[in-house]
């Protein structure tokens, strides 16, 4: 199943909802992988006629079904990094009243939300719906490097190699959770990794 119930947590941890159509002349939808299912659930012809869909497939095959919704504009990209300049270009010319819908993994939604915020949309006005992988985008608080798609706790920083534990403290600006050295007080004492939600 692509829907996951996240356990309750601290206030800084994002909470995701269910996308709903809102008033507005322009609609920008950004989704990755199973996030496509949330757009398929949302689709209505009159909404799609005013929507621009940016889909990051990550190896899935939802693109044809999304295209069949006949959105005003459709783009499929392989990765977020490949799509980000296009997202920025769209936001650059957008007007107040633009509705932004994000669906898929936390990493995709966090990064796209950050782009929309920087363009001038408050984060509370941006809709999100989680689908698919529960892996996290993690910042190492020590070296500042970002490790993508972290599913286990603790994990090894992809940049500096420290063993980090996974916090629920989340930064919208970095679009990442915080990873902190787990064996700082007792070097070498690193517990065995398990799934974040195990």
């Amino acid at each position: 199943m692509s829907k996951f119930q996240f356990p309750p947590s601290i206030i800084s941890r994002p909470v995701y909802g269910t996308l709903e159509a809102r008033a507005g002349k322009q609609h920008l939808m950004i989704a990755d992988a199973e996030g496509a299912e949330a757009l398929l659930d949302l689709a209505a012809p009159e909404l799609m006629a005013r929507s621009h869909i940016i889909f990051i497939s990550r190896g899935t095959d939802y693109a044809e079904r999304l295209k069949a919704l006949s959105p005003q504009q459709f783009y499929e990209g392989p990765t977020y990094a490949a799509s980000v300049s296009r997202i920025r270009r769209v936001l650059q010319d957008a007007h107040m009243g633009l509705q932004v819908y994000l669906a898929g993994t936390e990493g995709l939604m966090g990064q796209a939300q950050n782009e929309a915020m920087q363009a001038g949309i408050p984060h509370t006005a941006i809709q999100t719906e989680h689908r698919g992988s529960t892996a996290r985008r993690m910042q190492c608080v020590h070296c500042k490097g970002i490790t993508e798609d972290v599913a286990i706790d603790p994990f090894q920083c992809a940049h500096c190699g420290l063993n980090l534990f996974v916090r629920d403290h989340y930064s919208r600006r970095l679009a990442a959770y915080q990873g902190v050295c787990i064996d700082a007080e007792d070097p070498g004492n690193v517990p065995a990794a398990k799934g974040i939600y195990e």
Binding site: I11, S12, R13, H169
Partner: peptide, 22 residues
């Protein structure tokens, strides 16, 4: 606590890790 991580957060968010007080 890390300014670099918490910059841009609101009052409740940057205090999120504090236990009991919320």
């Amino acid at each position: 606590w890390s300014l670099d991580f918490d910059i841009g957060m609101n009052f409740f968010e940057w205090h999120a890790p504090v236990p009991l007080a919320h």
